[in-house]
Design a protein around this nucleic acid. Structure first.
Length: 872
RNA sequence: GCCCCUGUGGUGAAAUUGGUAGACGCGCCGCACUCAAAAUGCGGUAUCGAAAGAUGUGCUGGUUCGAGUCCGGCCAGGGGCACCA
């Protein structure tokens, strides 16, 4: 007999039992039970599982197990987002093939995940880097191409002029290429785009139906789509017939305009530069630097005065200078803006720098002076001034008025603009889904014939030199045109990996060999009932997946518009970062904590850096395997669920895992104490570890399956039974709401109470019920206890216990008594005491009388069941 | 720079959504058991104070009988910003 839970023997035993019983295989789509599709964002196979994964997958697992116990048909799959840049980086650094590296990582991580004891249907596992997945994605791409949702256009990339390769944003460090150190340039390439902007309005409106999404995510997406109404108008170049088209969201400030600025790659800028070397230099200068919004917006605002002027559309005698400016982007709007410095900070900075007029047109208070003072633009509401026919209007009235005038006079029109841009999916990389098109010198761009899918990546590639291995592969891209038979070339761009993650949730629901998915089967499971993942995916992944689903709906492949009915964004698991004196990142295991701060193994001082999301590149990951070895899966699971609210970031610390291990053993001892005592060390239980758990009764004991609702009880037993029923209701509600930390606290309260209770039938009943209550969270221990107490079958298959609502009601309440909002006393009163009785009782309180000191209360506020506040 | 979020004891946090701040843990302190240790159990633990009491939810101002919760301004930390996933 032992008083310790032994996870090293127990964990594998029950994991095997679940596998043998096919417990977690997905029921067929025809299953009559309500369907529940629980999905966690699938991982990138970086090599090892870290605590962020453990947190994510434990949460989903608790939910999936609880859903099964409450009578749902559950789909809970797992797969791998296995294309992407890290595999190519590994190939360059370690001379391994990206595929070999990725597949080895998947095997290692799968092994780790299995140790967690997840209730996953592994028969549906998928990996996006395998042709059976990406080939189907190519088929969907061709569908989109046919439906007119795909097109090519020029767009800007980060170009490393030394390595002659396209860089990802994260490969640009302080404006330089990460490997070469060369100053990065902007370069235009012809690239493939998906028309997400066709769905801008739908995607915006759809947010309204996503009631079970966090408000903050909906807000972020709304801002990202960025619908705005404005004016598209033309400023005519002085003395010529040409005009510059400008879009503005602030047409009300048109009389405050003091310049027009165009992008460095605006056609007019190029035209002017042909015989202006200074402008050529300026444009070349604008090409330096990265392509990200953050870089562009924090870079110094610079302009080049072209010497040209334009006429103000409302007063042709008013001429404004035309600048080429580095902060105007050709990709947004029309690639040209007018500047109203008084009411836009960026324009004001620009105007002060180049000594341009700053005219006030929105009055904040009484100040109508046309000359605007100071360096802080006024962007708030106000009354229009210095603006002729707009004077006296509000900002909104002026916007409407000027748009109406422009349309009437024919120099502009109102326009709805979205910030959202089309989705550039081209990547000049090897490790991604090949874009299934062919370029023929005679026939143009052609889709790959369907029967030729999948277009499989060649295996024989080298990463010795930078650039796209597909492009320089000796044979892969060459073929004969399927139309005219002449020599042609394959597209060598691959798809953005966000494409892979934009439909994997559909493939999980249905995975036929001959098509991406079966419509009816997919519709039976979708939309996902609960999607769980990191907040870092709040915009891009979730928006692309929503778009992809709507695009599939549009072409008739599936009849749902939103893929994720409920979304939960978990907080990240963070950890301090460490670096040695040379600035190299160190992992936590390489650190020795000393009296004078942490050092390296050889005694050099370690810099403790920022606390950041666990990531391989910063080496601040914590591997769960040593913790599985020491404490088992349940203690690790319990630890991840305890304490921190799941949506909040969690700074990893190891103190505490000991505490959860102790708690696991406290429950274990409760199982051991159930009356009638069970026999120990029974059937086939001896193992090398010596510490063997109970494994069932030997027949003659009281039958314990279908634990009965307790008979009426009194006294202490009633108190415990009430607490039990409160725990059943509370834990179930907390799990459904993904408030696992609260479910854990309630489990603690129940266990504390059971431990204090004297042996009785009610106590035994509470312990048997406890096995079911913990089954979703710490399933191995629950199974072990269930079996030990003689429960039939697997606890995973048991129904979630019922609770009696009558037992949740208390007949007494403790209320607060305040004087002037300060707590002075508490009273225990009957639950249904009326206001007058509460007021009288409060005023009778000795402590209240002492504070009042003979004074007469001015007012008494009574909140029944809560408090009495006496205002003196 | 722009958008979003977070901030409560030594520490992770809870607070029925405007009504008793600190539930439940971790840690720590004390005691019991033990030859001893581990494990386990019992008690204590916001701060100041001998006590009465006072103070206290990042800072600051406001609304309210009453604010951790609502509003304004600030500070700090985190996420995203379209080629990290």
């Amino acid at each position: 007999m032992t008083s310790r839970f032994n996870p090293l023997s127990s964990d594998p035993k029950w994991q095997k039992a679940w596998t043998d019983a096919a417990t977690f295989l997905t029921p067929p789509a025809s299953d009559p039970r309500p369907k529940s599709y629980i999905l966690e964002m699938f991982p990138y196979p970086s090599g090892r599982i870290h605590m962020g994964h453990v947190r994510n997958y434990t949460m989903g697992d608790v939910l999936a197990r609880h859903k099964r116990m409450t009578g749902h048909a559950v789909l809970h799959p797992m797969g791998w987002d296995s294309f992407g840049m890290p595999a190519e980086n590994a190939a360059m650094e370690k001379k391994v093939h990206p595929g070999a590296w990725t597949r080895a990582n998947i095997e290692a991580m799968k092994k780790q995940l299995k140790r967690l004891g997840l209730a996953i249907d592994w028969s549906r596992e998928l990996s996006t880097c395998e042709p059976d997945y990406y080939g189907q994605e190519q088929a969907l791409f061709l569908d989109f191409l046919k439906a007119g949702l795909v097109y090519r256009k020029e767009s800007t990339v980060n170009w490393d002029p030394v390595d002659m390769t396209v860089l990802a944003n994260e490969q640009v460090i302080d404006g330089r290429g990460w490997r070469s150190g060369a100053l990065v340039e902007k370069k235009k390439l012809n690239q493939w785009f998906l028309k997400i902007t066709d769905f801008a309005e739908e995607l915006l409106e759809g947010l309204g139906s996503l009631e079970r999404w966090p408000d903050k995510v909906r807000l972020m997406q709304e801002n990202w789509i960025g619908k705005s109404k404005g004016l598209n108008c033309t400023f005519n170049l002085t003395g010529t017939g040409d005009g510059i088209d400008v879009f503005t969201t602030r047409p009300d400030t048109l009389f405050g305009a003091s310049f027009v600025a165009i992008a460095a790659d605006h056609p007019l800028a190029a035209e002017l530069a042909t015989n202006a070397p200074a402008l050529q230099d300026f444009i070349a200068d604008c090409k330096l630097g990265g392509t990200t919004a953050a870089e562009i917006e924090t870079a110094e605002k610079k302009g080049f005065n072209t010497g040209l002027t334009v006429e103000h559309p409302l007063d042709s005698s008013w001429h404004l200078p035309v600048y080429v400016a580095n902060f105007v982007l050709m990709d947004y709007g029309t690639g040209a803006v007018f500047g109203c410095p008084a009411h836009d900070q960026r324009d004001l900075d620009f105007a002060r720098k180049y000594r341009l007029p700053v005219i006030r047109v929105v009055a904040e208070g009484d100040d109508e002076d046309s000359e605007f003072e100071g360096d802080v633009a006024y962007t708030g509401p106000g009354r229009i001034v210095n603006s002729h026919f707009l004077n006296g209007m509000s900002v909104d009235e002026a916007k409407a008025s000027i748009i109406a005038t422009a349309e009437q006079e024919g120099w502009g029109e109102g326009q709805t603009q979205y910030r959202l841009r089309d989705w550039g999916v081209s990547r000049q990389r090897y490790w991604g889904t090949p874009i299934p098109v062919i370029h023929c010198g005679f026939c143009g761009v052609l889709p790959v014939p369907r029967q030729d899918l999948p277009i499989v990546l060649p295996e024989d590639v080298s990463f010795d030199i930078p650039g796209n291995p597909l492009d320089r592969h000796p044979t892969w891209k060459h073929l004969n045109c399927p139309n005219c038979g002449e020599p042609a070339q394959r597209e060598t761009d691959t798809l953005d990996t966000f494409a892979d993650s934009s439909w994997y949730f559909i493939r999980f629901a249905s995975q036929p060999d001959d098509k991406p998915f079966d419509k009816a089967e997919a519709e039976a499971w979708l939309p996902v009932g609960q999607y769980i993942g990191g907040i870092e995916h709040a915009i891009l992944h979730l928006l692309y997946a929503r778009f992809w689903t709507r695009a599939l709906q549009k072409i008739g492949k599936i009849d749902i518009s939103e893929p994720f009915d409920a979304l939960f964004t978990q907080g990240m698991v963070t950890h301090a970062t460490f670096a040695d004196p040379d600035g190299k990142w160190l992992s936590p295991e390489e650190i020795i904590e000393g009296g004078n701060g942490p050092t390296t193994q050889d005694g050099r001082a370690v810099t403790v850096g920022r606390i950041e999301k666990m990531s391989k590149s910063k080496k601040n990951v914590v591997d769960p395997d040593p913790m599985f070895d020491a404490y088992g899966a349940d203690a690790v699971r319990w630890f991840m669920l305890s304490d921190s609210p799941p949506e909040r970031d969690l700074e990893w610390s190891e103190s505490g895992i000991e505490g959860t291990w102790r708690f696991v053993n406290r429950i274990w001892r409760l199982f051991d104490s159930v009356n009638p005592p069970h026999k120990w060390g029974g059937v086939g239980e001896a193992d090398g570890g010596g510490a063997v758990g109970p494994s069932g009764v030997d027949g003659a004991e009281t039958p314990l399956h279908h634990f009965a609702v307790p008979l009426p009880v009194t006294g202490e037993d009633l108190t415990l039974t009430k607490l039990l029923h409160r725990a059943i209701a509370g834990i179930g509600a907390d799990i459904s709401a993904l408030q696992f930390n609260k479910a854990v606290a309630k489990t603690h309260e129940l266990v504390n109470a059971i431990e204090k209770a004297a042996p009785s039938a009610s106590r035994d009943e509470a312990i048997r019920t406890l096995a079911r209550l913990i089954a979703p969270m710490i399933p191995h221990l629950a199974e072990e206890g269930w079996a030990a107490m003689g429960g039939e079958g697997l606890v995973a298959d048991q129904p979630w216990p019922d609770h009696d609502p009558a037992l949740l009601i208390d007949d007494e309440a403790t209320i607060a008594v305040q004087v002037n909002g300060k707590l002075r006393d508490t009273l225990t009163v009957p639950k249904d005491a009326d206001k007058a009785a509460l007021e009288a009782a409060a005023l009778a309180s000795e402590k209240v009388q002492r504070v009042l000191d003979g004074g007469i209360p001015k007012k008494v506020i009574v909140v029944p069941g809560r408090l009495v506040n006496i205002v003196a």
